[in-house]
Design a protein around this nucleic acid. Structure first.
Length: 477
RNA sequence: GGCCUCAUGGUCAAGCGGUUAAGACGUCGCCCUCUCACGGCGAAAUCAGGGGUUCGAGUCCCCUUGGGGCUACCA
């Protein structure tokens, strides 16, 4: 049988990292087996609907490569793929479930429900309306009384199932309440809609967050009542912000789009979240979506929550940058490069080669090259560097000579400049480190820069370089 | 509170009864070096606690502790 998995987000805001990982695993699992991955929008809670969030879901999945075969915007044979458009279907099946004894009409108002509170303040419905006769029910409905349809959970016994990650799960029915399946507005709750849709859409493997682990037995009750085959369940551990908080938009950050905007390499985001809660059999960590698909395995999924580590994500992003071709790097970093003070003033290729091994995310680029445009009065103590055998005195003495040598360079490029300065150091019998240190300080005024003396001089150009050396000679007095 | 569930370094994690308890990020040190970075080498750092079972337990069982989830006309 062809594997069919689905991702079923609610359009209540951004699609965050946790949700994206759930989608990713569903995608990987299906693709690895030549199956289909379906996107279904679960918008049954009209009060939580956030405008534009469906589009964010589409965009994120396309952009990240976690693409679905069927969904609201791409179609498919099992539509509609938006739950609000399936409203009539749920009513039909809810009524059918009532006939089958798996559910019943309930007319209790909130007042009566509230009166059911126990000593802990918990409400547990008492099956009061289960006793209503067919005639009574019909009369109430005809009279226009609002109602809900509740699941009829057995008072005794227990439900078990086998989860592919967590193993055998058993929950006593006495611990499950008669939850609402169809709300008074006619919309189904998640608890009902997921069962109907997963069955109708032919979902073979339900991959979702662990929050549904303990409520799955009540879904199984419905599958059984309808005489439907239960899907295979694969529940996933949560991704945490820290030891006690789940990662969420509300907690501050963490949506795919946010990371892209911050300049993380897109593939690294997918790569990293794949590794949160799953580990490959091999020790390779950097993997493309295709490699992830090839290597994904259920046995590698862990049961315990994992904390999202931004530092490691940055590292991975940096790895992608280092292995990127110059052309690709250039194309990707452009929006960030534009934010630099140095942008447009120097040779772009040289600027970028300076920065390629020095940034992990694109947004770091400006801070790495802005120094080129930040040349002002600096602390002369920068010349004091015992390791480089440099001092203010030496600098004073040697800087004019450096200027002279550089003035005579006609072929202004890194290698030529380097040779010229090394020759000078030999001639003066001064360590080349000292000459190069002094030169770099003289033209940048910075303790550390991306690029060495001659690389920077190359980028600055002859005029600017000599100009700055003059300035520094003056500064040294 | 009840129920479900999880527990290896700071973080991600391998491990599935016998290992010097992998590897990665991070940290620190050394090397390379034209500062910074890259790269190379190395180090420190983990089985939550207590009982069992066993010749032998990170691995199996129980309890405790701690974390997460469910307990909504939210998903």
């Amino acid at each position: 049988m062809k594997v069919r998995t689905r991702f079923a987000p609610s359009p209540t805001g951004y699609l965050h990292i946790g949700g994206l990982r759930t989608a990713l695993y569903g995608y990987l699992f299906a693709k690895q087996r030549g199956g289909d991955f379906i996107l279904r929008i679960e918008d049954t809670d009209t009060t939580r609907y956030v405008d534009g969030s469906v589009q964010i879901i589409y965009d994120t999945m396309r952009d990240s490569g976690v693409m679905y075969d069927e969904g609201p915007d791409v179609g498919g044979d099992y539509g509609p793929y938006v739950q609000s458009e399936r409203k009539d279907l749920y009513k039909e099946y809810a009524e059918k479930l009532v006939e089958l004894g798996g559910a019943y009409y309930c007319f209790c108002d909130s007042e009566r429900i509230a009166s059911l509170k126990d000593e802990n303040g918990n409400v547990r419905y008492d099956k009061h309306c289960l006793n209503l006769s067919k005639e009574e029910i019909k009369a109430k409905i005809d009279a226009g009384e609002p109602y809900v349809i509740r699941q009829n959970v057995p008072l005794e016994g227990s439900g078990s199932y086998h989860d592919l990650v967590y193993g055998d799960i058993t929950v006593d029915y006495k611990d499950i309440e008669d939850g609402i399946l169809l709300k008074s507005d006619g919309m189904p709750t998640y608890n009902f809609a997921n069962v109907i849709d997963d069955h109708l859409m032919g979902i073979t493997h339900v991959i979702r967050g662990i929050e549904y682990l303990s409520s799955t037995p009540k879904y199984n009750l419905m599958y059984d009542a309808f005489g439907w085959e239960r899907p295979v369940y694969i529940h996933l551990p949560p991704i945490m912000k820290d030891a006690q908080h789940k990662l969420s938009k509300r907690n501050g950050d963490a949506s795919y789009a946010d990371f892209v905007e911050k300049g993380y390499v897109k593939q690294s985001i997918i790569n990293y979240i794949a590794l949160l809660g799953w580990s490959p059999k091999s020790n390779t960590e950097k993997m493309s979506l295709q490699e992830l698909t090839d290597n994904f395995s259920l046995e590698g999924i862990s049961k315990s929550p994992s904390i999202f580590d931004d530092v490691k994500l940055r590292w991975l992003s940096g790895e992608y940058i280092k292995e990127m071709s110059m052309e690709e790097f250039k194309a990707n970093c452009y929006p960030f490069l534009k934010d630099s003070k140095a942008y447009g003033k120097y040779d772009e290729d040289k600027l970028l080669s300076l920065v390629k091994t020095r940034v992990q995310i694109y947004s770091e680029i400006p801070s790495k090259i802005d120094f080129l445009e930040e040349f002002t009065a600096y602390d002369l103590n920068l010349y004091e560097n015992s390791k480089q055998k440099s001092s203010i005195a030496v600098a004073k003495d040697v800087l004019p000579k450096i200027k002279e040598v550089l003035s005579n360079v006609t072929d202004w490029q890194n290698s030529t400049l380097f040779t010229a300065l090394v020759d000078l150091s030999t001639k003066l019998e001064i360590k080349k480190q000292a000459i190069l240190w002094i030169t770099r300080i003289a033209i940048t005024g910075k303790e550390a820069t991306a690029g060495g003396a001659t690389e920077v001089a190359d980028i600055l150009g002859k005029d600017k370089t000599l100009e700055r050396i003059d300035y520094s000679i003056n500064l040294l007095g």
